[in-house]
């Protein structure tokens, strides 16, 4: 500093006011560049017919009109809703149950269990899908061999029957994500004061009632957070069906994200893919926002 002034510099005077903008700035710059602009470009592309080379042809609402008539799109939507229902109705409760079991007082090896259940999410999905493909091969897989040995029947066409293929995909989802969600619930449970349970016990509440009247309300914030995250991420499920079944047999495991990927990168229909993306955005964003608001995620009460 060449001059020493009595007055602090302009920056020093305003630092506390301006610093936070600089601190949070990088996120918004990246957000604008890599999210807002792409969404805008996606909306534009969705009104065009474009194969990736040459000028996009403006076709107005044609893409949307075709989408609504496209049975594949509805199939993928149906499948995605199925996956979402499964995670909300099965994976989520299963995680909560598992977390409650792990929260049992004085449980030995709690950390070991916690780690074992968590490990699947650590492993790359391609690896996981390969191993599941190995296990659920209809002709020579481990699963059928085990069923054969135990029940004398092992001819299930795991990945080639439309129904079983969906089962295999959700089993994979269950296996991959249950342990991950469990640790969130477990952390939530560990935050519930023991006194609440003791008070409930004094009132003569059984295990079920104390679960309903103490545990569930106390878990509301964590459930909300997990619920929204899971809802949004399952809405864009891609890796599990893509790697395991390629969406097959037929289109019975095709998800919306796969539909978009297929249109854009396998069929060169980039405008069409963008239109599907915009519809998906509208749906997921609305559901996500409503859920966030309902559950008050990210707000300090």
């Amino acid at each position: 500093m060449s001059t020493v002034s009595a007055q602090p510099s302009w920056w020093r005077r305003n630092e506390v006011r301006l610093a936070p903008y600089l601190f949070i700035g990088p996120f918004y710059v990246l957000y604008a560049l890599f999210m807002i602009i792409p969404i805008g470009a996606g909306v534009y592309l969705s009104f065009t017919d474009w194969a990736g080379l040459g000028a996009p042809q403006w076709i107005g609402l044609e893409n949307y009109r075709y989408l609504l008539q496209d049975n594949s799109f509805w199939t993928s939507l149906g499948n995605t809703v199925f996956y979402m229902s499964f995670t909300m109705l099965v994976v989520l409760p299963a995680s909560l149950l598992l977390a409650s079991a792990l929260n049992a007082r004085g449980l030995k090896l709690r950390d070991t269990f916690r780690i074992i259940f968590f490990v699947p999410v650590v492993i790359s999905p391609i690896v996981v899908a390969l191993v599941f493909g190995l296990i659920f091969d209809g002709q020579f897989g481990l699963m059928n061999a085990l069923l054969q040995a135990v029940f004398g029947f092992g001819g299930i066409e795991w990945t080639t029957d439309p129904l079983w293929a969906r089962v295999v995909v959700v089993v994979l989802v269950l296996w991959r994500w249950t342990g991950y969600l469990t640790i969130f619930f477990l952390a939530g449970l560990q935050n519930v004061p023991r006194e609440l349970y003791e008070a409930a016990a004094l009132d003569g509440a059984g295990a079920v009632r104390s679960f309903l009247s103490v545990t569930l309300p106390a878990l509301r914030p964590v459930t909300a957070f997990i619920g929204v995250t899971v809802l949004v991420s399952t809405a864009q499920i891609f890796e599990e069906p893509f790697l395991l079944t390629q969406g097959g047999p037929g289109e019975s495991t095709l998800s919306i994200a796969m539909f978009i990927y297929r249109a854009a990168f396998q069929r060169q229909e980039l405008g069409y893919a963008a239109a599907a993306g915009v519809l998906m955005f509208a749906a997921v964003f609305t559901i996500g926002r409503i859920a966030l608001r309902l559950f008050q995620v990210g707000r300090n009460a």
């Binding site: 594949s72 066409e157 037929g250």
Partner: peptide, 17 residues
Amino acid sequence: MQVMTTTLGGPVLDAVM
């Protein structure tokens, strides 16, 4: 042809099975 590949896959499998 690519669209046909995916649309035909499912029905053929159904018939074969």
